[in-house]
Write a protein that binds this DNA or RNA. Sequence first.
DNA 1: TAGCAACTGGACACTGTGTCCACTTACCCT
DNA 2: AGGGTAAGTGGACACAGTGTCCAGTTGCTA
Lengths: 201, 201
Amino acid sequence: MPKRDLITGLPIDRDQARPRERADAARNRALVLDAAERVILADDGPVTMDRIAKAAGIGRGTLYRRYPDVASIAAALVDSRERRLQGAVISGPPPLGPGAPPADRLAALYRGVVDLLEAHTPIYRAISPGPIRYATGAYGFWRLHVRTLLVAAGTPDPDALLDLLLAPLSPDVYQHQRRTLGLSPDRIVDALTLVAHRMLG
Amino acid sequence: MPKRDLITGLPIDRDQARPRERADAARNRALVLDAAERVILADDGPVTMDRIAKAAGIGRGTLYRRYPDVASIAAALVDSRERRLQGAVISGPPPLGPGAPPADRLAALYRGVVDLLEAHTPIYRAISPGPIRYATGAYGFWRLHVRTLLVAAGTPDPDALLDLLLAPLSPDVYQHQRRTLGLSPDRIVDALTLVAHRMLG
DNA sequence: TAGCAACTGGACACTGTGTCCACTTACCCT
DNA sequence: AGGGTAAGTGGACACAGTGTCCAGTTGCTA
């Protein structure tokens, strides 16, 4: 079984020219993410591979052909949601985009991710906390971006600080702050902004 | 079914005088944690309730009587491991104990927790990442402690900052830094120390 | 339009869960 | 002392979800 890309579900094999994906396969691939989102948002009972397959109108085997487990599907869903924010980071207006001081850009990134966490709470909850998170394209992107900010700010050992600064964005932590502690998104963003300025200011 | 304390597995009912725990129950309760640790450290296959019950020489029903799932057992195990560090924080010598400036105390706490994460990696890995973490006595203790440090340092909105500063200690994040990134414990502690001083210094 | 490789989907065996209840046993009371 | 009783015990059970497998199907290419 060939390794598959987390986001697209397509097989990964860089070198050789591979026969085009068949039309029915492509169609099903598109169906899966929609179906997964529906199942997650419906929110009755646990999100299982079986449910997603049924919602997509395909068989279990077909689903397993692309995604090894529910977490991967949720991760793919999250990735697709984060594309827009990534675009804004690369080429949008400051302070999120290039041009502003590193501390402001980090604060803006924090705000952007909090907005996402807020908007897609059920999806983030479905992506089981755990190692999968660090393998997503989205996480890789944040890492890369924060790293350049740290370097720009002249902070020592950016590679070790990186994940420490991203840790507060873990859906777990955010959920805990929102639900259990009852903090408002604004208050969380303010606290994160303080972190950004103290760490990079 | 009465709620049970995460650590001791004893029923929680503050007000009324409750009949003493029976001797056989107490014996089994002690057996469970030992057995759980053995199963976790053996590390062949997943840690299941069934395995722990067998290792303890008791039935599944008896195990479920005290702990609702594996995560709770692991949490209890972790709590018992963190008692010593908690003692040092309360009444040990500075900088971990009272007397040192808040930033130094936070840095010392970071180091202490990293040492624990390092020493008991398999156990921390067994406690499934997720909401259980925030319900443990240990986490509550760190929260309380860090809160007093934040207040002492005069930081704004300590209640919102709290969990942000504890987030980097999540076993997930630590595992990721150690295994995937290959960072040394010392390097991680150094980065955490920087965080402590920038945030409270 | 024939051949074939990719794709499909449901059946299957399996693992772990959580509940239930008849039996056992430690402790309290007289 | 020993009987009553409620707490404690443990294995059987029904169930949910997993991941694999393979015979059948279908889209693509030559």
